[in-house]
């Protein structure tokens, strides 16, 4: 395995880089969209049910199918990494809209009212009071989305988009265990590293929860 790594170091490094980009870019895009939409879903309960239904619908579409749809909808090349980024952004968004809405809903009413009584309003109250309290719930969703993304990205290897998933396809074609094992280990390590980073950021953002055990 070590000789395989040293022989293919530059390719492995490039694939890892792509894997990181393809996993994280959708996370940021998805989260950036999910925050306002989730806020809307929580603020206007009427849109909650339809929003959750629509995003749930998105979530049922198998990843390979969604990757194939993307060029059709976006007019991109089938091999373009943009397809993967957009498709995974949709999954992330689907998962996080509900998480953000539920997270904001988990803010106790008396806290919101106390904040309003002290003079917070609108966006200020959202950013200074509600979002921080919702962080644990949102972070739990972000962790799931991130770890899922790392695994989903590798499926794109079937279509031929370069990243660590290529190790599975080439290993399978060559009937060669080493790249497959390496790919699995690489994916798991990436997922664990991302997970640890999110966990760390959550802890920094929620100092009042530090005494509690993490789930």
């Amino acid at each position: 395995m070590l000789s395989y790594i040293s022989d293919n170091a530059s390719t492995l490094l490039r694939w890892t880089g792509w894997h990181v980009v393809l996993s994280l870019a959708p996370l940021f895009i998805g989260l950036a969209l999910a925050l306002p939409i989730g806020w809307l879903a929580n603020r206007y309960r009427l849109v909650y049910a339809p929003l959750v239904a629509v995003t749930g619908l998105l979530y049922t579409i198998p990843s390979l199918a969604l990757f194939v749809f993307m060029p059709l909808i976006l007019g991109t090349q089938i091999l373009s990494p943009v397809n993967i980024i957009i498709a995974l952004s949709l999954y992330t968004l689907a998962l996080l809209v509900r998480t953000v809405a539920d997270g904001l809903a988990s803010v106790p009413d008396d806290v919101t009212q106390a904040a309003t009584a002290m003079g917070y309003k609108g966006l200020g109250r959202l950013i200074r009071v509600e979002l921080p309290i919702a962080v644990p719930v949102i972070a739990a969703g972000v962790r799931v989305a991130t770890v899922s993304n790392v695994s989903l990205v590798s499926v794109a290897a079937i279509i031929g988009v370069p990243q660590l998933g290529q190790l599975f396809t080439s290993g399978f074609q060559l009937q060669y265990y080493t790249p497959i094992g390496l790919g699995i280990i690489g994916c798991v390590i990436l997922a664990l590293v991302f997970d640890a980073i999110i966990l760390g950021v959550t802890k920094v953002l929620t100092p009042w929860r530090r005494q509690e055990a993490t789930p």
Binding site: V147, V150, S151, V155, F168, G171, I180, V188, P215
Partner: peptide, 23 residues
């Protein structure tokens, strides 16, 4: 529960598939 939930989610399905079929 905690162990399985977290570690299995991180396992890439394509990797698992190719590995087990090959083995």
């Amino acid at each position: 529960i905690a162990g399985i939930a977290n570690s299995f989610r991180a396992l890439p399905s394509l990797g698992l598939l190719t590995l087990i079929v090959l083995v």
